[in-house]
Design a protein around this nucleic acid. Structure first.
Ligand SMILES: [Zn+2]
Ligand SMILES: [Zn+2]
Ligand SMILES: [Zn+2]
Ligand SMILES: [Zn+2]
Lengths: 159, 159
DNA sequence: TCTTGATATGTTATAATATAACCCTTTATC
DNA sequence: GATAAAGGGTTATATTATAACATATCAAGA
């Protein structure tokens, strides 16, 4: 887990660690990591990329658990609410959180070429969004920060 | 025009100035500000808020120009391509640009309570997104930066 | 244990957003 | 005027998301 970024990383242990962390967070928050929620998180962790809700549904169906859209959206909503996954607005898609800390404001780097998404940390209130908010008397409650571009792997492959 | 932000501003002249600027930009770029494109921009400028594509369509219909979805999406796409409007990912909506300069990377402050959207400037390559991109070897080509929260007017009304 | 309220899931139907594809019209250029 | 390029009209459909309601599961207290 952690700041994998675009580096090819050893994916083994990634899923296990993510699930363990999810269990801890849910216990601490007094909420239930039910089988469906857990399975959706597993799927996101295993793919390690942004997936649409219907893509998750397809995966569930192929794994022998056919379900209707609300099932996926509820599970994804739960995961997002508890910081275990994030919604990428630009892609209408969801990705497992790869950040260890809780209550974080992530910024995403989205590769146009290969679709890989890296999650980086963000200092709420800092940087240019914070400055703009202060200048306008605006109180920030949530931030969507997504950069589209090309990752180092794709630039190396086709410069 | 310019940095209206959340301050109540004198809206007269706003539309006219926006259209004049659009004409200059299109002429300079060698593209055509056709009647439909112009009318959609007028609508966005007049409302001075983020509008969904179907909301724009409704407006067109009520103004005596009934049209199908592709008409609105084509016009909005044109306006976005040429920097005359922006897409707010978080809202699936579009807003006329309120920034004078060309080739700018805006950051939006979106009020949850009243729906008002302020557009602030952004230094591409600067701030925390720039830092994260450099740290990951990522080349940024476009940025989505949107903050949700409450504007000063709404906080004053219901603190 | 039995009731009971809260939470979660199953299911149907539909809303909201967006695009593909085709044909015709308008515009710019030769 | 012929021709190519760009834009608009239209139909149909894809994609994303939610409302609403029935059923099932869980957590505690009586
Ligand atoms: Zn995260
Ligand atoms: Zn890539
Ligand atoms: Zn702008
Ligand atoms: Zn407000």
């Amino acid at each position: 887990m952690g700041e994998a970024g675009f580096a090819t990383h050893d994916h083994s242990g990634c899923i296990e660690a993510g699930l363990a962390r999810a269990g801890r967070i849910c216990t601490a928050a007094g909420v239930r990591l039910t089988p469906i929620r857990r399975r959706v998180l597993e799927i996101l962790l295993a793919e390690h990329r942004a997936m649409g809700a219907y893509e998750v549904l397809d995966r569930l169906a192929r794994e022998g658990h056919p379900a209707q859209p609300p099932v996926a959206y509820r599970a994804l909503d739960f995961l997002v609410r508890h910081g275990l996954a994030h919604r990428i607005e630009r892609l209408n898609a969801f990705i497992a959180c790869s950040h260890s800390g809780r209550d974080h404001a992530p910024v995403f780097l989205i590769c146009r070429a290969c679709g890989a998404v890296a999650e980086a940390g963000w200092q709420p209130g800092g940087g240019q969004i914070g400055a703009a908010a202060r200048a306008h008397g605006f109180r920030v409650e949530a931030v969507v920060a997504e950069a589209l571009g090309t990752c180092p792997n794709c630039r190396a492959a086709a410069p």
